[in-house]
Every structure is written in structure tokens, then in C-alpha cells.
């Protein structure tokens, strides 16, 4: 940063080893197209494992992975647990209820205690943006950290499984037009998707939402803003719908669910504006009749359930790569 005098802050990519390998997986930001492609290719090699009689590979045998969920999540935690077990790792699940005002000491002490049990990897979900970065850079740098969602900031494994889904169904990213619809403001998934799509070379990323749900200046990430659904999804190849939380109605962001559904809900009729072969995605869990019509969610264009299956393979890829990078760096230091 040239603007500040004697600025001692050196933003560096904490998730890479000195030779550019993944050692934590914190966000898509700063990762190259080659690295993202490597994640997708690695995921591809794991993709058919679920159908085999023995659903395990010994890549992480003897390694201890701790799922640290400071925020509730059933589905994401389950896919991380399955992914770890299919890599033959030992898994410990910790649900740590914490209020957003809890002292940093608690988080720091908790993590250092678990590190003292010789954990090799933490899968962290936390309500505060930057929590995974904080842990990786300040608390336990020698434990591989996988970000399973931090505040509104990033949810990179979800974004990568979405990229995997898109590549599977659309063959690649060249010339691809993608619309992300709904509550962009609170969505860490959307932020990670925008980065991943741009890095992988998608032709156009569109964000469709009312202005109260669009973060200020988000277009600078590489996205076009649309406030009308019909224009926003016109001719797109992929429609990604986001979950709308009920709290948004009480926070003076939206007047009612009904009005949101009328304007932005994905119905069969609205989907007709998209490319005839467009696929419909959703990070789940879906709100039927709030952001998406049942006929669309269960229809032939929906790949929502496939996404869940791909999630395991993608997480296996990220976990094995980060562990390998972390081991590599530890070996070099010793």
C-alpha cells in the first residue's frame, strides 16, 4: 500500500506456502486460476467414490481433523465430516455456542487447547467476517484451517462446489453468463462465487436484487448490477438463487416476503427469460415460495441436489490439498 506512510501492515496471502501451494483454505481471493482448476480436477478424481463399495482413500490416515462450528449448521458440517472420513482421517466435531460479543480470549483459549491435542486441521465456521484469517494468522498457523463460512465474508468450499457443479453441467466457464439472485448483502456464498467465477474466466457475473440487499460498491468485485429480474436473468446459462432469511423483513430491508417473491422469486415464468438450457442452483436450504417456486426447485433444470453430492468431493479435494501443503511446509521448517 503506497498511500500510507511507514505502513507496517503487509497484506500477504496467508493461505499459500512460500512456493504457492495451498496450506489453508480461507477465501478465493488471491488464488490463481490454475489453483482453482487443480481443486476442481482433484474433486473430479474423488467424485465417483460415493458409488464404490469401499468409500475410502487413505490420504489423511492418522491425521486429526476438528470441525469447529461456532455457528449452527447441519448440512455443511455433515459433508465436511463425510469428506474427512472418506479421506480416512479421525474426526472430532465440536459445536461451540458463542454469542457475537464473546471475548476473544475464549476463542483463543479454545483453539489453543484443541491445538494442544495435536489436531492437524480445523474446519471453522464462525459468525464474524475474518475469523478464519484471524485463526490462521494469529492463533494456530501450523494447523491447516479450512474456512467453512465466516460472517458475510467468504464460504470458499461452497463456491468451489458450485464451480464444480457448473463445470460438470456446462463443460467450462468460457462465455458463461451467471446470475446470482437475492440477498447478496448477507451472503458470504455470493462473495466467494463472484471471485471464483471471475478467476475461472466466466464471461459475465450478474447480481440481481433490490438495492437494500446489494452491498455498496460490490460491482467492483467484477459484477453487473441488475434490479429487475427479467433483465438480470435474460439469456444467462446459470441462475443461482440465494436463501432469504426471515429476519430481513424486520430489519427494514424488505417490506414483505410476498413482494420479494413477486419481484425476485424464481418461477417457471421468470426462468423462461434465461437461456433455454440454463441450470438452476441454490446453496440451500431452500425456502419454497419465498425465493424459489417448488416446480422450479424440483424441475428438470434444477441441479440443487447434485450440488450437495459434489460438496463432499470438493471438500475432500480442498482438505487433502491443504493438508499436503501444510505438511510440506512443516517438513521444510524442521
Amino acid at each position: 500500500m503506497s498511500s500510507a506512510l511507514n505502513n507496517p501492515a503487509h497484506p500477504r496471502n496467508v493461505q499459500l506456502t512460500s512456493d504457492g501451494r495451498l496450506k489453508h483454505f480461507l477465501s478465493i481471493n488471491g488464488l490463481s486460476k490454475a489453483l482453482l482448476t487443480e481443486i476442481l480436477d482433484t474433486a473430479e478424481s474423488f467424485a465417483n467414490m460415493g458409488e464404490q463399495a469401499v468409500k475410502k482413500v487413505p490420504l489423511l490416515r492418522g491425521k486429526t481433523i476438528v470441525n469447529l462450528f461456532f455457528e449452527n449448521s447441519t448440512r455443511t458440517r455433515a459433508t465436511f465430516e463425510l469428506a474427512a472420513k472418506r479421506l480416512s482421517a479421525d474426526v472430532l466435531n465440536l459445536d461451540i455456542k458463542t454469542s457475537s460479543t464473546a471475548k476473544g480470549e475464549t476463542l483463543m483459549d479454545t483453539l489453543q487447547n484443541i491445538e494442544a491435542m495435536y489436531a492437524d486441521m480445523f474446519v471453522v465456521r464462525h459468525a464474524d467476517s475474518g475469523a478464519a484469517h484471524f485463526i490462521a494468522s494469529q492463533i494456530t498457523p501450523r494447523v491447516a484451517i479450512i474456512n467453512a463460512g465466516d460472517g458475510r465474508h467468504a464460504h470458499p468450499t461452497q463456491a468451489m462446489l458450485d464451480m464444480f457443479t457448473i463445470r460438470k453441467h456446462k463443460g467450462g466457464f468460457e462465455g458463461l453468463k451467471v446470475a446470482i439472485v437475492g440477498d447478496i448483502l448477507h451472503s458470504r456464498v455470493a462473495r466467494s462465487q463472484i471471485r471464483a467465477l471471475n478467476t475461472l474466466g466466466a464471461a459475465e457475473v450478474r447480481l440481481v436484487a433490490p438495492k437494500t440487499l446489494l452491498p455498496i460498491g460490490i460491482e467492483e468485485m467484477g459484477a453487473k448490477i441488475y434490479t429487475r429480474m427479467e433483465e438480470g436473468i435474460k439469456d444467462v446459462d446459470v441462475v443461482i438463487m440465494l436463501r432469504l432469511q426471515k429476519e430481513r423483513m424486520t430489519g427494514a430491508l424488505l417490506p414483505s416476503e410476498a413482494e420479494f417473491y413477486r419481484l425476485y422469486g424464481l418461477t417457471t415464468e421468470k426462468l423462461s427469460y434465461a437461456h433455454p438450457e440454463a441450470i438452476v442452483m441454490h446453496p440451500g436450504p431452500i425456502n419454497r415460495g419465498v425465493e424459489i417456486e417448488s416446480a422450479v426447485a424440483d424441475g428438470p433444470r434444477s441441479v440443487i441436489l447434485q450440488q450437495v453430492g459434489y460438496g463432499i468431493a470438493t471438500r475432500m479435494a480442498v482438505m487433502s490439498m491443504a493438508m499436503s501443503g501444510q505438511m510440506h511446509e512443516r517438513a521444510q521448517i524442521q
Binding site: 481471493n29 467476517s129 475474518g130 465466516d150 460472517g151 458475510r152 465474508h153 467468504a154 458470504r188 462473495r191 452491498p215 455498496i216 460498491g217 460490490i218 460491482e219 467492483e220 468485485m221
Partner: peptide, 13 residues
């Protein structure tokens, strides 16, 4: 500070 950067980082502006 509310702006593009806080939006990208998911920090409330």
C-alpha cells in the same frame, strides 16, 4: 468504512 472494500470483506459498514 462503508464502501466497496468493506462490502468485499463482508465487514459491516
Amino acid at each position: 468504512h462503508e464502501g466497496s472494500l468493506s462490502s468485499q470483506l463482508g465487514l459491516e459498514g
